[in-house]
């Protein structure tokens, strides 16, 4: 659920909690769950792609074998990428989410 989406009233939604449109999971922005967000430091990154391999939400965009960006709509802020980033590299840090 994106923060800007207008929530609907009880008369406007299907009864029984039914979802009438298929394949709408991609509309659900799990990024809203984060309390800490991963921040990427390109100058330190060695593009080993350990983060990409371990990200449970496929929230890391890679092109041509290189780290491009986080998909913050999908990233739940679990911190696995920062943990797996080699100690000598430390190209990902977790920072407190601020509104």
């Amino acid at each position: 659920m994106s923060e800007t989406e207008q929530l609907k009233g009880w008369k406007e939604i299907p009864i029984g909690g039914l979802i009438l449109a298929p394949g709408n999971a991609r509309e659900y922005k799990t990024g809203g769950w984060r309390t800490f967000k991963p921040v990427h430091h390109m100058d330190k990154c060695i593009h080993c792609l350990q983060c990409w391999m371990h990200c449970p939400d496929s929230a890391i965009k890679v092109e041509g074998g290189k780290f491009i960006a986080f998909n913050y709509d999908a990233c739940k802020g679990c911190g696995i990428c920062a943990k797996i980033c080699p100690k000598k590299v430390q190209a990902i840090t977790m920072e407190k989410e601020e509104k």
């Binding site: 909690g17 039914l18 009438l20």
Partner: peptide, 17 residues
């Protein structure tokens, strides 16, 4: 007309249901 029954329904819509 595919539909989903019984999805998770948290504080944003449970009350409306």
């Amino acid at each position: 007309n595919p539909v989903t029954f019984g999805p998770l329904d948290l504080y944003d819509y449970y009350f409306e249901h």
